[in-house]
C-alpha cells in the first residue's frame, strides 16, 4: 500500500526520464509535496539544458585542419579492414564517372554521406535518434532552426512506416537533419535533409545502391533530400514518391 521511498538514483532517473511510467508518477507525487526536492530536480534538468546551450556551439565550429582525416593513400594502406566501405565509396564513385558535371558529382557525394549516416544510426537500438517522435513538434522546430529554414517531416504511416524521430548531423556545409522511420518489423529508413547551396535547383530522383543500401536523392529548391534503406529499389521508390508528394502538395 505504501509507496517505497524515493532514492537519489531514482530522482536522477526521473530527471533523465528513464523511470518506468508508474514509478515516475509516484516520484511526481513525492515531489509535489516537497518543494525543495522539486526545485533540486528542476535545477538538475536546467543543468542539462545549460550544458547544451554552452557547448553545442562547438558542433558548428569548423574542424581544425589537424583533426581532419589523413589523405586517402595513407588511409588505404593503414585500414585494409574497412575494405567494405572502400568498396562502397569506390562503387558509388565509379557510377559517378558516368556523369560529367561537377554539380552531379557533388550531388552524389552528399548522397553517399546520407548512406553513411544511415549505416551509422539505423542499427542503433537505444539511441537511434536524438529527439523521438513523441516530441515531433519540438523536433521539427529544433531542426528547422538549426538548418535555418522551415522543415516538414513527412508521415509515411500509409506505407507502414512510422516516425522514430530525428537527429542533427554535421554536413559538409553545415548542419544536416536526419529523420528515421521504421516499419512493424523494425526495418528502418532514413531521410537525410540538407540545405542546398543553390536554392533554385531542382532535380529528378537519382538512385544509387551499394552494399544493400538503396538511396534515392533529389534536390528541391532550398533543400536536398536523400532517402536511404536496405530495401528494393521499387519499394524505396514508392516511399520516395510519397515523401516528395507530401513535401510538394
Amino acid at each position: 500500500m505504501s509507496v517505497p521511498p524515493v532514492t537519489e538514483a531514482e530522482l536522477n532517473a526521473y530527471v533523465d526520464a528513464v523511470l518506468p511510467p508508474a514509478r515516475a508518477a509516484e516520484v511526481e507525487a513525492y515531489l509535489a509535496e516537497r518543494p525543495d526536492e522539486a526545485a533540486r530536480v528542476a535545477s538538475y534538468r536546467e543543468q542539462a539544458h545549460a550544458l547544451r546551450r554552452e557547448f553545442d556551439q562547438v558542433l558548428d565550429e569548423p574542424v581544425p585542419e589537424r583533426l581532419r582525416p589523413p589523405p586517402p593513400a595513407r588511409a588505404l594502406r593503414r585500414y585494409a579492414a574497412v575494405l567494405a566501405w572502400i568498396v562502397l565509396g569506390g562503387a558509388i564513385g565509379w557510377q559517378l564517372h558516368a556523369y560529367t558535371s561537377v554539380r552531379q558529382v557533388e550531388a552524389g557525394a552528399w548522397a553517399r554521406r546520407a548512406a553513411m549516416a544511415h549505416v551509422t544510426y539505423s542499427p542503433e537500438v537505444r539511441h537511434p535518434v536524438e529527439v523521438g517522435a513523441d516530441q515531433e513538434a519540438h523536433l521539427v522546430a529544433w531542426l528547422s532552426k538549426r538548418l535555418g529554414t522551415p522543415l516538414k517531416v513527412p508521415h509515411l504511416g500509409g506505407l507502414g512506416y512510422s516516425l522514430v524521430g530525428g537527429r542533427l548531423l554535421p554536413g559538409d556545409r553545415g548542419p544536416v537533419a536526419q529523420f528515421m522511420y521504421q516499419d512493424g518489423k523494425g526495418l528502418r529508413l532514413t531521410l537525410y535533409v540538407r540545405v542546398n547551396p543553390d536554392a533554385s535547383r531542382e532535380t529528378a530522383f537519382r538512385f544509387s545502391q551499394e552494399q544493400g543500401i538503396s538511396v534515392f536523392y533529389w534536390l528541391d529548391k532550398k533543400l536536398g533530400y536523400a532517402l536511404s534503406g536496405e530495401i528494393d529499389k521499387s519499394d524505396l521508390l514508392r516511399v520516395a514518391d510519397a515523401v516528395y508528394k507530401q513535401l510538394n502538395p
Binding site: P69, W85, V119
Partner: peptide, 8 residues
Amino acid sequence: MSDDDGLI
C-alpha cells in the same frame, strides 16, 4: 577521403 575516415 576514404569512407572509414568519413564515418569517424
